[in-house]
Amino acid sequence: MKVLSDAKVGSSAEIACVQCSDPALRVRLMELGLVRGTRVEVLRKAPLGDPLIVRIRGYELSLRRIEAQAIEVSAEGSK
């Protein structure tokens, strides 16, 4: 399964599952709207490639790569 950190800038995908080892972070990500079936778009990466910015439910969220690695997404091409 593909993870969000591998998604290309400009592409969008659908969230399949949030699999953090830290339960508090997992709950927080889901409470921010990163739940199964949600559309997520990768907007950009920081100059050093990390963190990244995604758009979800109409707002922008910044995540580190390591956090994005825990978010499994369905593979989908760029829009």
């Binding site: 927080r28 963190p51 707002y59 969220l61 580190r64 956090e67």
Partner: peptide, 12 residues
Amino acid sequence: GPTPPFVMELPP
């Protein structure tokens, strides 16, 4: 301690 997550909203 564990690195705290850097999950941050970028407001408009």
